[in-house]
């Protein structure tokens, strides 16, 4: 396949960037999107150019490190995948592909396609945990039976990989899906209920402080989320927060 890539290049956080066009051929449909970028970079290095910086690590869709806004969609046109799982068979010979970083005020660009998502970490620091010491001197794991449906829903919320596609895709750069997934995971479990009110207040407070936008329920995040985190979680957080703030 022959493709034209239009890639955002930005030297560092301070300088302004621009879209630069790169032609590329010999792309195999079996390649992953990142392998295609590897090939591009190999060529750039051999030519003496600066390779395109992009985040990636596990390349199997679980670490949440890879990002990229491809042809107007977070993680590209496929559904239920991260960029590293996106394969070139999703594109046609001769296609032009826009590749941009995940954009949000709370995700400043570090270089090219690499962004700083530490705002997500700070939200977690504010309350994304259950305050239990790791001494191991706790009750036996089977002491509290947990309704399987709740346990499963908690798990579904917990599968969030923190990639930031929800923010990137949201027209408001809202982090609600991410935050609500964590809030929900714990709110659905008996051991998490103890400090549920403080957790949701603190996490939302931090979320607002980071400069994310507000949720307007467009539902785009759910569609683009590689792990299919449900909007139900956002509603649950709305509920939790409402109750916590009027209590």
């Amino acid at each position: 396949m022959k493709l034209t890539l239009k890639i955002w290049r930005q030297k560092n956080a301070k300088e302004t960037g621009k879209i630069v066009e790169y032609p590329i051929d010999n792309v195999s449909p079996d390649m992953s999107f990142l392998e295609m970028l590897d090939v591009l970079n190999e060529g750039l290095i051999n030519k003496g150019d600066d390779p395109v910086a992009f985040d990636h690590d596990c390349r199997e869709g679980i670490c949440g490190m890879c990002s990229l806004f491809i042809n107007g969609e977070a993680h590209g046109p496929d559904r239920g995948v991260t960029t590293c799982q996106l394969h070139m068979r999703m594109f046609k010979d001769g296609d032009t592909i826009f590749i941009e970083p995940f954009r949000a005020k709370a995700f400043p660009v570090i270089k090219d396609l690499v962004v700083d998502r530490s705002s997500f970490d700070r939200i977690q620091h504010a309350g994304g945990f259950i305050s239990v010491n790791t001494s191991g001197n706790t009750i036996d794991a089977n002491t509290i039976p947990i309704n399987k449906h709740d346990a499963d829903r908690s798990f579904d919320a917990a599968t969030c990989i923190g990639c930031g596609a929800c923010v990137a895709t949201c027209k408001n750069s809202s982090a609600m899906l991410f935050v609500s997934a964590k809030v929900s995971q714990f709110a659905l479990l008996p051991q998490g209920k103890v400090e549920a009110a403080d957790r949701v207040l603190n996490m939302v407070n931090q979320m607002d402080a980071e400069g994310f936008g507000n949720c307007t329920n467009t539902g785009a995040c759910e569609v683009e989320c590689p792990k299919g985190i449900s909007l139900e979680n956002i509603a649950r957080m709305n509920r939790e927060y409402l109750v916590a703030s009027i209590k």
């Binding site: 107007g72 826009f98 809202s174 936008g213 307007t216 785009a220």
Partner: peptide, 27 residues
């Protein structure tokens, strides 16, 4: 809310395919 939302993304995307994931009215 709209003003805040606009501020939350100071640099816009060159290409967006929003119709792939959300309804026109919602946006």
């Amino acid at each position: 809310l709209t003003v805040q939302n606009q501020r939350a993304r100071p640099i816009k995307y060159a290409k967006e395919n929003a119709s792939a994931n959300s309804a026109w009215a919602s946006r």
